[in-house]
């Protein structure tokens, strides 16, 4: 818009947008605030917003009682491991589809996407059986593999759309300049692809971190990540709002922060490049 907007209109926009934004964000804000209250203050009526006695006690209790670190560590390994593994497998595939396309490329891409659409519940029992058979039930390795597989189509697609934006002529120029395949990848392709790969990693880490079907159904104790840890709070015991809030805050804080960094690339990843 190459036109100046009246300050009045801008003020109305601002007020409206902030109001709605805060309303949408409120459940998260409330959870974070509650995590610093005592249990009694957490359920007070009328609710207390800010003038309560700030305490870190809930965090301490949650950590002590539930071995929070173990769940956190499982989440990190499952989300991180599946993302790294997925990237290693997807980069060559996406590279070849973007730069050496054949008639089948489009079909392969769409077919990959279709595997992502497979309803998990439809294959739940076979996977469960296979996990029992292979001794993968409640193991981090098993979940890393499953997470990698369910996110692989998204990883390939995101990388493909990023690679596609690197003009082919630049790679040809590198070839004309005497670069071997190895040098071409090292000096030209990689530096240009790094931003795309980074945002792919970020989004897939988030998706894997939040995944709550396989993590709930294929883990029990040893490999349970934060999603399962939180679900264990679903049967209440006495006053537990503040502790629930503390546990929730710890589970979502890392992802909220990562998510804010990735919001620009989010759209492309979530729509398989169809909206940029």
């Amino acid at each position: 818009m190459a036109r100046s907007v009246t300050t009045r209109r801008k003020m109305i926009n601002t007020a409206l947008a902030w109001g709605i934004g805060l309303l949408i964000f409120f459940p998260i804000l409330w959870t974070i605030l509650t995590s610093f209250k005592t249990e009694a203050q957490a359920i007070a009526n009328p609710p207390i917003f800010l003038n309560f006695d700030w305490t870190l006690e809930n965090y301490a209790v949650v950590q002590e009682r539930s071995d929070y670190m173990k769940f956190l560590w499982n989440s990190v390994i499952i989300a991180g491991g599946s993302t790294i593994l997925g990237i290693i497998i997807a980069v060559p595939a996406a590279w070849s589809m973007a730069f050496v396309p054949s008639k089948a490329t489009k079909d392969i891409l769409l077919w990959m996407l279709s595997t992502k659409m497979l309803p998990a519940v439809g294959v739940l029992y076979p996977i469960y059986l296979l996990f029992v058979e292979l001794g993968l039930l409640d193991s981090r390795a098993g979940l890393v593999i499953v997470m990698m597989l369910i996110n692989l189509p998204i990883i390939v697609w995101m990388l493909y759309t990023y690679f596609k934006e690197i003009p082919g002529e630049i790679l040809e120029a590198a070839r004309m300049d005497g670069a071997e395949l190895k040098e071409e990848i090292l000096y030209v392709l990689t530096p240009m692809a790094v931003p795309g790969i980074a945002s792919t990693i970020l989004l897939n880490f988030i998706l894997a971190w939040n995944e709550a079907f396989w993590t709930l159904n294929l883990t029990a104790v040893d490999a349970a990540p934060l999603t399962a840890f939180i679900a264990s709070y679903s049967s209440p015991e006495g006053l537990f709002y503040a502790k629930l809030s503390a546990a929730s805050t710890m589970a979502i804080a890392p992802i909220l922060i990562l998510g804010w960094f990735s919001q620009k690339q989010l759209v492309r990843g979530l729509t398989f490049g169809a909206v940029k």
Binding site: P167, E169, I170, R175, V188, P191
Partner: peptide, 19 residues
């Protein structure tokens, strides 16, 4: 292969390395 032909090319889009 192109790298070994001893030819240099100027592309329509210039194909400069942006980084």
């Amino acid at each position: 292969p192109p790298a070994k032909r001893g030819l240099a090319m100027v592309f329509q889009s210039y194909a400069l390395y942006p980084h």
